[in-house]
């Protein structure tokens, strides 16, 4: 993975002529990015339209649905309610950053295996929240899991299999870390 800063031209899609411009530097999925944006540019638009990371979705605009969830310095946040300038100097991780070296993360695997998704639109945000939950609590109860995803709405699955998937991912992570040769 490249480590040098990659300059990005201001993107017409989110920049209005004559508007004030801020220069930001964000590390996205481990890769430093420098860009010029309008201060009003929402982080979700920066990710989707400037960086082309379209896995992060927009579902409600009012910070209720969680389809836009990304990690900001390791914590899941709703990127439709964060300005790109607020992310400057910080680490952002998106759904595109879950798969490492061609290997799906335990959460991604578990969502497939437990049928934790249908239309797939809420899925990236849901998986980002799940990933953060399991980092803190690898063995959540059903109730803890449901509470953790209360800010992520899903219209297709009725949540049963999402909860199953998240708890399955926790088990996968635990058995991977206890298995010989597994990650510490």
């Amino acid at each position: 993975m490249a480590t040098s800063a990659r300059p990005v031209a201001p993107a017409a899609a989110v920049t209005t002529a004559g508007a004030p411009i801020s220069r930001i530097q964000v590390t996205v999925n481990g890769q430093p990015v420098v860009a010029e944006v309008e201060p009003r540019t929402l982080l979700v638009h920066f990710l989707r339209e400037v960086l082309g990371l379209t896995g992060t979705h927009i579902g409600c605009d009012t910070s209720h649905c969680g389809a836009c969830t990304v990690h900001l310095d390791g914590k899941p946040v709703k990127s439709c309610t964060v300005l790109a300038v607020q992310a400057s100097g910080r680490q952002v991780r998106t759904v595109e950053g879950l798969e490492v070296d061609g290997k799906l993360s335990p959460v991604q695997e578990a969502f497939i295996e437990a049928h934790g998704l249908q239309c797939g639109f809420c899925t990236p945000g849901m998986m980002m929240t799940a990933t953060a939950l399991l980092a803190r609590n690898p063995n959540p109860t059903d109730a803890e899991t449901r509470d953790a995803i209360r800010g992520n709405l899903c219209r297709c699955t009725g949540y049963v299999n999402i909860v199953k998937a998240i708890r399955l991912a926790g088990q996968k992570m635990q058995s991977a870390s206890s298995a010989p040769g597994g990650k510490p």
């Binding site: 910070s63 969680g66 900001l72 946040v77 709703k78 309610t81 929240t129 800010g151």
Partner: peptide, 8 residues
């Protein structure tokens, strides 16, 4: 709100 909102 919810855990995501509470992170900010």
């Amino acid at each position: 709100a919810d855990p995501l909102v509470r992170n900010l």
